[in-house]
Amino acid sequence: MSAALLTDDAPTARKSTLPSDVRVTLPRVVRSEWLKFWSLRSSYFSIAGMVVAMIGLSVLVSTVTSSHWTRMKPAQQARFDPTAVSLRGYFLAQLVVGVLGVLVVTGEYGTGMIRSSVSAAPRRLPVLIGKAAVFAVITVLVTTVAAVVAFLVGQQILSSQHIETTLGAAGVTRAVLGTGFYLTVVGLLGTGIGFIVRSTAGSIATLFGLLLVLPVLGEALPPDWADKINPYLPSNAGQQLLEAHPAPAPMLGPWAGFAVFCGYAVVALVVGAVLLKRRDA
């Protein structure tokens, strides 16, 4: 208990005077969001989860592949893609990134923190921009580094069978760096959905419904419809960037597909921004 509680002296709320330039600016809100990100345990767990998923799965899949290589059928060997084998961890990492992207927002709605956030920045848009920017910068760095390490470690393991590839080979650098971009946009899509749906469970269900369930449903479409729709489904479009040898038409090219994928995230963030502005907090 502090002395203020025990004395009868009326406490005074002011000791020092605040600087004269105290006011809300976008860079300040971004700095606040940066501190918010790093002051929660879940951020560290998620980042650790991403890295372990990327590198751990690369080690696992590369090791299993090398040890089976001599027993694999020629057809299997022909389909073998050393880049994809070492980046297989993206599939698990996207779950972690997606959940983190959602939690950055819904963690605040769930606890009531969002009311503090929007009362400190009542124009509200800086809150969304700050969250998206901080999340994107941290995630793109972490996932890109994790993807590069996963690739290098995987190739090192595959080199025991002389089946490795290098960053200089066609499409490989694009696929490795693209993994970081793809994962970051998965998270941003989650952030946008978080602002729209506001509940953690609902947002995660929506995000992975879009990413994982839609492509499965798309495969059930009649062929002439499938060719028109499937290339544009979010993960079908976005994952083209992860392939050193992208699937041919009607699937979109790697950058065109990624642009479509970014479009989904932009739409989610814009709708989220409009709702954040309009709805009661």
Binding site: V24, V29, R31, S39
Partner: peptide, 11 residues
């Protein structure tokens, strides 16, 4: 950290 985050928005 909650107070710091609130304070940072305003400098």
């Amino acid at each position: 950290n909650h107070l710091r985050a609130m304070a940072l928005t305003h400098g």
